[in-house]
Nucleic acid binder design. Sequence first.
DNA 1: TGTACATCAGTGAACGCGCGTTCACTGATGTAC
DNA 2: TGTACATCAGTGAACGCGCGTTCACTGATGTAC
Lengths: 235, 235
Amino acid sequence: MESSAPRTARARVRAEMSAEIKEVARRHLAEDGAAGLSLRAVARDLGMVSSAVYRYFASRDELLTALIIDAFDAVGAAAEQAGRRTAGEGTMPRWLALSAAVRDWARRHPQEYALVYGSPVPGYQAPAATIDPATRVTAVFLALVTDGVAAGEIATGAAVRLPRTVRADVGFIRATGAPGVPDAVLVRALAVWTQLFGAISYELFGHLNNVVTDLDGLFAAQMRQAGAFLMAGAA
Amino acid sequence: MESSAPRTARARVRAEMSAEIKEVARRHLAEDGAAGLSLRAVARDLGMVSSAVYRYFASRDELLTALIIDAFDAVGAAAEQAGRRTAGEGTMPRWLALSAAVRDWARRHPQEYALVYGSPVPGYQAPAATIDPATRVTAVFLALVTDGVAAGEIATGAAVRLPRTVRADVGFIRATGAPGVPDAVLVRALAVWTQLFGAISYELFGHLNNVVTDLDGLFAAQMRQAGAFLMAGAA
DNA sequence: TGTACATCAGTGAACGCGCGTTCACTGATGTAC
DNA sequence: TGTACATCAGTGAACGCGCGTTCACTGATGTAC
């Protein structure tokens, strides 16, 4: 994070230009995907010469990184907003709001979703700076689960039999953002979470074409079911 | 599908050459991804001139299509083999074998998995010829569900409340490969199915790095849970 | 408030590269009689 | 079994293209005194 309020006029213009480059790059992403993202094409669209872009991003990969961070931040913000909107409510409405927010964002920005949750860009190594923004969405989910357990809304259910290694992994997740949530609930939570992204990817990447017509309805039904499963270990 | 046994020697050599091109292309895929797949690079690796490849594939996209079909066929074959191996058994062992087979294949061929279940290749429109091979995996799953219901192993559970449009979609799925399976079970089945691909993608695309260490153990636990949910509407 | 210097944004040309695809061709392999 | 012709695989050169990145430069904007 840089200081949010640029002092000088030059710095302000610079920030605006940076944003504009990313904006155009996002449009290109939407048409040609990450692998087809080209600094030259972006520069062309902005009416500048390609080398000028290097004043703002040191390389193509750095621009890509900026887009990835922005994408994670955007889903994260959407999730957090849904979280705030349903702050006082129960586990189910909170979960439905969160899952819908993630899906809506994904549908509105399919290539950005693909960028962060689809196949990795070949030859690109995500730097450490992308980790923090990536955890924002997950944090909203874990908070919801934690609250649900604390409020007694989420039933623990029968204890699950897990290998020691898996118990350790689950313990790590509990330690990072889900205090007091028992193993059984966390395993269900993980299932529900991967189901969410599985459902979105399945829909967005075209595997439901010619099979399902009411995508909204099916998604809603799936998420209601998933919420019930999360809460009670049953649907 | 072409005739499986090439008559003439020329046809045999041609088929071998075709296979060799795809083999090399698959290797390139594994390194550079679909967007980086280049006819020239493949030709170079085979010691031939780039234009010679056009004797076998009319364009880069046609080669990509062949790879996609092969990939779908490969997961399909792996799934069918798991299905045959567990043919007489119950729903749970069949499901565990199927899900493990799909995951194993995906881990052994990550770029091919990405090619068919990851982000779509920008600018590439999958032709109709890819649809049939794509349904093979799903067919194995639906057979398992159908058998489980017929054998009384899968409980229907409480009837679900679904919009008419979703009921129609579910009815279409039932008609194509799951005769006699009630709505409630089919909706659970869809959830379990998307969870499978969500879990594989999450793992393969790196979202569990630095979070989960025992990927095998977690996957197995998740799939046991998913199987129980499929069978009883609970875990 | 005015001047001298430093910083920075953007230019334009160039580097070396790889790509998909076409085309006229050579020579080997198959087919028909 | 042998010859004449058709088919086909692979060659090599060329087309036009776009890419990332570097570099010496011009001119405008900021900063220090």
